[in-house]
Design a protein around this nucleic acid. Structure first.
Length: 332
DNA sequence: GGTTATGATTCTAC
DNA sequence: GTAGAATCATAACC
């Protein structure tokens, strides 16, 4: 009767007992060991240590361990497992992408040189100064890259060291309490997650450093260069010859950009500024307007006269400008 | 060194 | 998305 009760408690199939008579005795042993474990907390430290030692040396220890490990697996760990399916952090992904694009993370080529090309583009129009800034930017970016990789190495080393330490500790502890390999694996995951927060901070501060560097070197306001005289003349000619509607089409902007050796965006900026400044102070620009209107008229006249009077006397070498007198505000 | 000119950016309205 | 307006930052000039 007592045996049956114990069997029920231990969920043992009676058929198994008939087949394996030793099983009943083994279950009795396990039951006794479990009871002793439960009683350990009520004992003094010395008594508990002695009992712990006795349990460690018990012949059933390994079997008991596997049972306890299985129980743990089926209860607490299985519950945790459901919650641990965490999707990749979008913030970390963004930082990774940025560091890759900037050439700080990943292979040195690609992003790094793309960024350098961006600097070169920003310094468009400038010569010596631009290349100097370009080199300076590359050097600074390279420094950031070096620091990032050094820190990353330190981080990985620290992470591996700590993980190894914890794993050893758990393995050591697994001699006295049931710790399954899966549990150790999960602990390693937890440690990696904690360390990834530090990694996130490293990536965040690296991104900030790159952004500051970029703003310092790529902010066009800091590296502003006036357009060449020729470029300004071309733009002004177009503006004043289309004064009724100074809004160049995309094609016209592209052509002007090509002629002036500037970007389409710069052409758009120039026209934006010109329109607003002209409108604000028409009187101030009147002279300029007359000058370019005259120039356009003379150019048109010279083209038509060249085509119709190829043998006519040569005009003075004044770049096609008429020798007319202007008032200070540009009027004839 | 102060002032003006100028190219670029940002914000707002459409 | 584009234009207008305000503003910033630097170049150029005196």
């Amino acid at each position: 009767m007592e045996d049956q009760k114990r069997m029920m408690q231990a969920h043992i199939d009676p058929d198994d007992i008939r087949k394996h008579p030793n099983l009943v005795h083994q279950q009795q042993d396990i039951g006794a060991i479990l009871q002793r474990i439960m009683a350990i907390t009520d004992e003094s430290l010395d008594e508990a240590q002695a009992r712990k030692h006795a349990l460690n040396c018990h012949r059933m220890k390994s079997a008991l361990f596997s049972v306890l490990c299985e129980i743990k697996e089926n209860t607490a760990l299985s519950v945790r497992g459901i919650q641990e399916e965490v999707p990749p952090d979008p913030q970390l992904m963004r930082l990774d992408n940025m560091l890759l694009a900037e050439g700080v993370a990943g292979p040195e080529r690609g992003g790094f040189f793309a960024a350098a090309a961006a600097v070169a583009a920003a310094a468009e129009g400038s010569t010596d100064d631009g290349s100097l800034e370009h080199a300076d930017y590359r050097e600074k970016l390279s420094q950031i890259r070096q620091i990032y990789h050094a820190e990353l190495e330190k981080y990985e080393q620290a992470c591996n060291e700590f993980t190894g330490h914890v794993m050893n500790l758990l393995r050591e502890q697994s001699r006295t309490r049931p710790i399954s390999p899966k549990e150790i694996e999960r602990m390693v995951e937890i440690i990696h997650r904690k360390f990834s927060a530090i990694l996130m901070q490293l990536k965040q501060s690296t991104c900030e450093a790159v952004m500051i560097l970029r703003s310092r070197f790529l902010d066009a306001r800091r590296t502003r260069r006036n357009f060449s005289k020729q470029a300004t003349e071309i733009l002004n000619e177009y503006f004043y010859s289309h004064l009724a509607n100074p809004y160049p089409s995309e094609e016209a902007k592209e052509e002007l950009a090509k002629k002036c050796c500037i970007t389409v965006a710069q052409v758009a900026n120039w026209f934006g500024n010109k329109r607003i400044r002209y409108k604000k102070n028409i009187a101030k620009f009147q002279g300029e307007a007359n000058l370019y209107a005259m120039k356009t008229a003379v150019d048109a006249a010279s083209v038509s006269s060249q085509s119709s009077q190829l043998n006519s006397p040569a005009t003075p070498d004044s770049g096609g400008y008429p020798s007319l007198c202007y008032t200070p505000d540009g009027r004839l």
